[in-house]
Simulated scan of single mutants.
Amino acid sequence: MGFRLANIAGRAALVDGDDYFDLFEISGGELDTDPMVAITMPHRLAELSATLHEHEPTGRLSDASVGPPIPRPPKSFAVGFNYQAHADEGGAATPTVPLVFTKFPSCLVGPTADVELRSDFCDYEAELVVVIGRGGKDIEPADAWDHVVGVTVGQDISDRVAQFVATPPHFDLGKSFDTFGPLGPVLVSVDELADCDDLRIVCMVNGDVRQSGSTAEMIFDVPTLISYLSRITTLTPGDTIFTGTPDGIGATQGKFLADGDVITTTIEDIGTIINRCVRVSDYQGETN
């Protein structure tokens, strides 16, 4: 048995259905309240998850203030054009090595947080997000899943104006505005998944299906990404990897996000995040 971990108002909690259980309370004060500490003890989380029926729920997830399950990753990576159909729709050549950029950790928000738009050219990108549990260097692909503490649902929101204001493009800046990294609702351990290499991803905007794909369609699968990154930088607990998005992004359809739009992102066996778009200001791409 595995576990489902949530961040409830900054406190780590285990989840069963819509019930959550404060980790500090059910562990008798043994485990820290910080989700970043909790992920370093996955075996203890699994043990406690098996005993949830012995405890009274602290509350209901649907009524709680839920933050990103990984609130402060040391490093946050993202991968571009990792689905062939997405590369094709963007007119990009098939990458021969992972196209990696960073999303600043400050952009991460919870599963129901508003996405703050600053231009008329903001885009959605549904993604599986992988979280490192056991760090390492030069990790072999065959061992990579053993270094994953869990996975979650993510959105790699992109301001295409900021992204393409310069040559070469600013993938990092255009995708790191505050609120541009919704995550959640829970971190799910790998052993809770029926098939960690084949998860269905669906993204809807205002109920209209925009993206539908499977992680089995990745050009570079999760073990390859982890191995590749670990040969460059030592991976540490809490590092996140946005693994790429299927085809159907707004830029290729002329369907950019607007004030009041609601993005619903679902990955099977993990959950759903729902984020409302709010236009807050205008991005100024030029400097004086």
Rank of each mutant, 00 (worst) to 15 (best):
T94S: 13
G260K: 04
P57D: 01
G238I: 00
I232W: 01
D282M: 14
G91V: 07
S281K: 11
R279H: 14
P35K: 05
T240N: 10
V161R: 14
A142W: 15
R118K: 12
L257T: 04
D22Y: 04
E127I: 08
D195G: 02
T287E: 14
G28E: 01
K75Q: 12
T243V: 08
I249G: 02
P169G: 00
D239E: 12
R276T: 12
K137T: 13
E125C: 05
F177A: 05
Q284W: 15
D18S: 01
R60T: 00
I249A: 04
K255W: 11
T51H: 02
M36H: 15
E127D: 08
G80P: 10
L108I: 15
E47S: 09
V205L: 08
D259C: 04
I132Q: 04
L45Q: 05
T167V: 15
I274P: 03
R210L: 03
T40Q: 12
A251E: 14
D195V: 05
H147C: 07
E30C: 11
C107T: 09
P71F: 03
G91C: 08
D156M: 00
F171Q: 00
T252C: 13
D195M: 04
D269G: 03
L61I: 12
F164N: 13
A38M: 11
V100L: 06
N7V: 10
E125N: 04
D16W: 13
D197T: 15
G80L: 06
P246Q: 12
L14V: 03
H170Q: 11
P74W: 14
D114I: 01
S65A: 11
G285M: 00
D261V: 05
T252L: 07
Y228H: 07
E125I: 05
